[in-house]
Structures are given as structure tokens and as C-alpha cells.
Simulated assay, not measured.
Amino acid sequence: MSLFKRSVVAEITSHAGVVFSTLMVVWLSVLLVRLLGEAANGAIGADIVFGLAAFSSITALPVILAVSLFIAVLTTVTRSYRESEMVVWFVSGLSLKDWIAPILRCALPVSLLIALLTLFASPWAYRQIGEYRQRYEQRSDLSKVTAGQFIETQGGDRVFFAEEPSAPGEELGRVIARVIDPEWHSIITAESANIQTEKNGDRFLVLSSGHRYDLKPGKPDFRLFDFDRYGFRLESKSDSTSLEAVRREAESKTKARPTGQLLADDTDRARSQVMWRLALPLAALNLALLALPLGAVNPRLGRSGDYLLAGLVGLLYMNLINLSRGWISNGQLAFGVGLWLVHALFLALMMYMMWRRLRVKAPKKPSPPAPV
């Protein structure tokens, strides 16, 4: 490999690593804030936050890799123009076309990695995310109760609040619960609570030393009970769902279905998802080549306008892919046309911009001398 190609590949790789690390840190920061908010609201368990963050990061990797490659190539080409390094290469007999080979040397492995992620890894990650969330939803009510937090279960029909246990052997301290059934609205308080599992697998929440207040909605009926021990069913063994059922339900979602199943499914929704999985690696390759003419700038001009234009082009590219996916899903666009149309348009744009950069303009004819 020549010195030129080695230097270009090394710089693109270095810039891509920095951009990728930055985007991943930003993505994980936003994701963790959102997941911790869901955990605080009781939508998910605190013990599955990091698992969900890991699998969600896998699903985001294709877009992050494509954007990182685009910015890395754009930054490398722009820097070479602004620091007049491009002049040295041009004087040495190279042209802008000679940049295509080192760019493809970096872009092809990234595009292949994105294809593996979109076709195989991302669907698997979506299935794992679905299973994590469904397992949490299938937990018993008591397993979702966290000391110091209000937790809603069964669509809001049960609301729990528990304190830390004050005596050894207790699983929960003081408990207050609101229970809504078709006839009564109940408020239950107790000094402590424990789980009791019967021989048939049913689980009960057993409250100790408490009170129950019942009110019938719309009627002046009111009941008050004092109890030493009070239990109500939390989970029946027959209510639990097998892991295989959870897996089947997760795979029924389009994003989580394996690519082989989507190819065998002759529906517009399945074809739109296949189009999306194939479009991302092609878009990464196209954007890397498109960054070459977009990065060819005049060193004497400001740099913000060029980066803004490149960002708008990349944003337009991804939005058109999303738009094509929606049209395919609604049956408004054929799968074959939607798969190649956007990429062909931007490939033609790249070739036109390269032709504009490479063509040599004829010198202007001198104007005739003015008459004396």
C-alpha cells in the first residue's frame, strides 16, 4: 500500500474511532436516563436496566457506525483541504478519484459489519429486550414492590407502598395497598408482610396486624376490618407463562423476527423490515463515498456551511429511507423499487458532484482591448 493510502486509511480510522466513542457515550447517557426513569416509575425493574441498555445499544450500533464512518471521511477530506495537504497530493500526480480506493478500504468492512448487525444481531437483541420486559411484567406483585416507592400493578388496580422491614424475618415493613375490584375499593394497611407459597405453587401476600377499609363506589356502603393475619393471592401457578411462550410473543414483533422468517413471510410489513435491514449497509457505503465531494471545500471559506450541508444531505438520505420503508409497509411502493431507488439517487448525486470537482474548466478568453 502506498504512503498516500496508508495515511488516508489511518486518519479515517482514527477519526472514526473518536466519533464512534463520542456517539456511544451520548447514546448510553440518554438511554440510561430514560431507563432509570422507567425503573423509578415501576415500568421496569432496576435489576434489568443494564441488560436492557446493553441490548438496546446493539440495536443502535448500525446507525451509529454509519454516521461515524460518514463524519470520519468528511472530516479527513475537509482537513486535507483546509491545511493545504490536498495540494501536495495533487502536485504529486494524484487526483480526487484516488481517494475512492482508501475510502472503500475503510467503508467495506464497516458496511459488512452493519449488515451482520441488521440481519442477525439486532433482531436477536430486540427479542431479548422483549423477553426482559415481559418477564418483569409476569412477576408477582410483591416482587415489584420496592421499599420507599409507590408501585402500580395490574393496570393500576393495585398500588403498593412498603417501608423497610424493622424486625428480622420480615420481608417488608409497614405496607399500604389500594385494591380495586368490580364491587369494592379497598385500602389495606399492615405492620409487616411476608410471602407464603402453597404446595400447589400459588403465592400469597400475608399481611400482619392491620386494617382493611372497603367502600362501594356510588353507594353509601362502608366496611372496616381489623385483622391479625390477612392474605390475598398474588400469583397462581397456572398464570405463569413458559419461556417458550414469551419467546414466541417477542418474535411476533416485526423488528424482533429473524430475517429468514421475514423473507418467508409474503406481507408488506415483513418486506418493509427486510428493506430497512438491507438499506443500512448500503447507506453506510454510499454516505462514505458521498463525503468525498462534500468534503472538497475552499480553504478560504468558513467551515460551518460545509458541515451543515453535509449534515442535511445525510439527514435527507436517512429520512428518505424511512419514508420508503413506510410506503412499502402500506403497499404504496414495490419492494424492489423501494430497496434501490434512494441509493441510486444518492449514488447519482455523488457521481455528479465528483464530475463537477474533477472537470477542468477552459480558461476564459481575454476580452478585446477597448478602442482608443
Score class of each variant (00 low, 15 high):
residue 187 I to W: 09
residue 187 I to M: 10
residue 188 I to A: 11
residue 188 I to H: 11
residue 188 I to D: 10
residue 188 I to N: 08
residue 191 E to N: 08
residue 191 E to Q: 13
residue 191 E to Y: 01
residue 192 S to D: 08
residue 192 S to V: 11
residue 194 N to A: 08
residue 196 Q to M: 04
residue 196 Q to R: 13
residue 197 T to E: 07
residue 197 T to H: 04
residue 198 E to L: 13
residue 198 E to A: 14
residue 198 E to N: 11
residue 200 N to P: 08
residue 201 G to I: 03
residue 202 D to F: 00
residue 203 R to W: 07
residue 203 R to N: 05
residue 207 L to R: 03
residue 207 L to T: 04
residue 209 S to P: 00
residue 211 H to V: 06
residue 212 R to K: 07
residue 212 R to L: 14
residue 213 Y to D: 05
residue 213 Y to F: 14
residue 215 L to A: 12
residue 216 K to Y: 10
residue 216 K to N: 11
residue 216 K to T: 12
residue 219 K to R: 08
residue 219 K to D: 02
residue 219 K to V: 03
residue 220 P to A: 09
residue 223 R to Y: 13
residue 227 F to M: 02
residue 227 F to A: 02
residue 229 R to I: 01
residue 229 R to V: 01
residue 229 R to S: 12
residue 231 G to A: 15
residue 232 F to H: 09
residue 233 R to Y: 00
residue 234 L to V: 13
residue 235 E to K: 14
residue 236 S to N: 11
residue 236 S to A: 15
residue 237 K to H: 14
residue 237 K to L: 14
residue 237 K to W: 13
residue 238 S to A: 15
residue 241 T to D: 10
residue 241 T to C: 06
residue 241 T to E: 15
residue 242 S to R: 01
residue 242 S to Q: 00
residue 244 E to F: 06
residue 244 E to R: 09
residue 245 A to Q: 13
residue 246 V to N: 09
residue 247 R to P: 04
residue 249 E to C: 02
residue 251 E to I: 09
residue 252 S to Q: 15
residue 255 K to G: 15
residue 255 K to I: 03
residue 256 A to T: 05
